[in-house]
Amino acid sequence: MRNCLLLVLLLILPPLEVIAETPEEKGLAIVIEADRRDTGWKDQVADMEMILRNRQGEESKRTLSLKTLEVVDDGDKSLTIFDSPRDVKGTAFLSYTHSLKPDDQWLYLPALKRVKRISSANKSGPFVGSEFAYEDLTSQEVDKYTYKWLRDETYRGRENFVIERFPAYEYSGYTRQVVWIDKEIYQTNKVEFYDRKNALLKTLEIKDYELYIDKYWRSHSMHMVNHQTGKETLLIWKKYKFNNNLDDRDFDINTLKRSR
């Protein structure tokens, strides 16, 4: 139904170029298009390898698996399960993300068999000691930011929109982010994060996109560099799987308690 409506709108509206569009409107339109193209995948599972590197080049590695359930008109549900380091094996993190109101989050500690509801106010805090903050990894809903188109630019040999986005949710660690969005596939190629003092904090490079079920682009490599500490984190995504028939039951607290 929604698609029909969109089609009608496209037919009756004059071409976009003709309308005098503000940079804010253009930025928002780009993000809405990106969101539209990435809607309808329903569920996804993937494995992730996380490599932390400090300024001296010392590395430590962790492996985790993620299950995600697409929630239309709200943030997604996700279940993250740790496999290594071994002392945290079986630790699981359940998150119901929301656009503007705080996310619901629970942590399962297998040694104590204990589920803890945890505060989501640490959005700006590091995810398991990495250079990724919680807010960098949760689902990117359109409502979470306000936007402004800055310019078009060739980046890594591809045409990109460069837009600025400003967090609209509470507890963000950023004043703004500058985002390079691929004009062809509407996926993010690069993000610059500016801290609360508006100084450049981190740069994220997202690479190795592959197309799944003919429709959805997924990255296999995300590289975050913290310019203020010299630390880096590399996320290597593997084994994406779609159409797993997951539903709400796979993301409830009973399932959290038996996650592996």
């Binding site: 509801r117 505060s119 106010a121 507890y171």
Partner: peptide, 9 residues
Amino acid sequence: LQSTKGNML
């Protein structure tokens, strides 16, 4: 019972 209000539990 637990109530999770922002930074406060």
